[in-house]
């Protein structure tokens, strides 16, 4: 199968916006933060046609920033993102409708003053996928496909529950007939019982529409459930990427191993029901550690890890790992 999404060396820095006062203070030697935040550094990957790539990492590791770049919301500081060889953004503006997004918080991602029918149909109307007269039937069709009563098209977002809103958000994204869907923590803000419903809806629609997906989550079990391949991010870089079955069964990077070990398991037979958290906290992306960014927390760290950053290197079984000791 061919690659549909090609990301090469994607990088995003956030430069602090200094006010005039801050700049004057900095000139006089005050401790004003002038260093840029490197949210995502030099990330390359490809997603194949029809594949779902799961993106996992701790809060603050840059996975949402990466997702926003892939979705065409945030222009990369450096690097290149293409769909079938076509750039997603030109001059800081998104130029394609082939990629659409489902956001984390369905309370915030729907305009509170628009009826949901208008929210679903506005993109297709603006891009002339449908004519205005066709909108009611179009909206009713999409509401039915995401499991909502077509009669609710005239309601406002606040009249729905979180799960129903996320269904509306999914309908809005898919109504644009995308080939690729970016899901940025789509179930993180939902109750566990609702999460399963939304995930099943997502799987059904992915199957029916042949979607390619980038699925971002901090929840390892959710990602395992939906992904063909997974990428593990740590402090703005991918540290391990490979087929989901491989990565979950035989994690090679110490961080991936730590992540999998830190998931609490429900086992009645084992006497040891405790789990192993990863020591320490995510370092500040303002001043990443030297060498391998994971070395301060890594049980296998050596002098080589402190001095030199490991590159993402291929391993058997289509896995790539960035570790000197993998």
């Amino acid at each position: 199968m061919s690659d549909i999404v090609q990301a090469s060396a994607l990088t995003r820095r956030f430069d602090p916006r200094l006010s005039l006062g801050d700049r004057i203070a900095a000139a006089f030697g005050a401790r004003v933060e002038t260093r840029p935040v490197r949210a995502v550094t030099d990330v390359s990957f490809a997603i194949r046609q029809g594949e779902t790539l799961g993106l996992v990492g701790e809060s603050g590791c840059g996975k949402s920033t990466l997702g926003r770049m892939v979705a065409g919301i945030l222009p990369p500081s450096a690097g290149d993102l293409r769909i079938d060889g076509e750039p997603v953004m030109r001059h800081g503006r998104k130029t394609t409708t082939r990629i659409q997004t489902v956001f984390q918080d369905p309370f915030a991602s729907l305009n509170p003053r628009r009826r949901i029918g208008a929210t679903i149909s506005e993109g297709p109307i603006a891009h002339r996928l449908i004519r205005r007269a066709e909108a009611p039937a179009f909206v009713a069709d999409w509401l039915a496909r995401v499991g909502l009563d077509p009669a609710v098209a005239t309601r406002f977002p606040h009249q729905f529950s979180g799960g129903q809103r996320q269904r509306v958000a999914i309908a809005r994204a898919l109504a644009m007939r995308p080939d690729i869907l970016v899901c940025d923590e789509p179930v993180a803000s939902l109750d566990v019982s609702i999460q399963a419903q939304i995930l099943n809806l997502f799987l059904d629609l992915r199957e029916a529409l042949g979607l390619t997906c980038l699925f971002i989550s901090h929840d390892l079990s959710v990602v395992r459930h939906v992904s063909h391949r997974v990428a593990i991010m740590y402090l703005g870089r991918i540290v391990e990427i490979g087929p989901a079955a491989q990565v979950y069964a035989a994690p090679r990077h110490p961080y991936t191993q730590g992540l999998l070990d830190s998931v609490p398991k429900l086992r009645l037979d084992a006497e040891d029901v405790s789990f192993q958290p990863i020591a320490g906290e995510l370092p500040s992306p303002l001043s990443p550690p030297s060498g391998c960014a994971f070395h301060p927390r890594c049980p296998r760290a050596t002098d080589l890890c402190r001095a030199q950053r490991p590159e993402l290197a291929p391993h058997p079984g289509e896995v790539a790992v960035a570790c000197h000791h993998a």
């Binding site: 979705a71 065409g72 919301i73 503006r93 998104k94 130029t95 409708t97 659409q100 997004t101 956001f103 984390q104 918080d105 915030a108 991602s109 729907l110 305009n111 509170p112 506005e122 993109g123 603006a126 891009h127 958000a169 809005r172 644009m176």
Partner: peptide
Amino acid sequence: DYVEAAAATP
């Protein structure tokens, strides 16, 4: 987010 969603449509 809803403004971002509109920009992402685009």
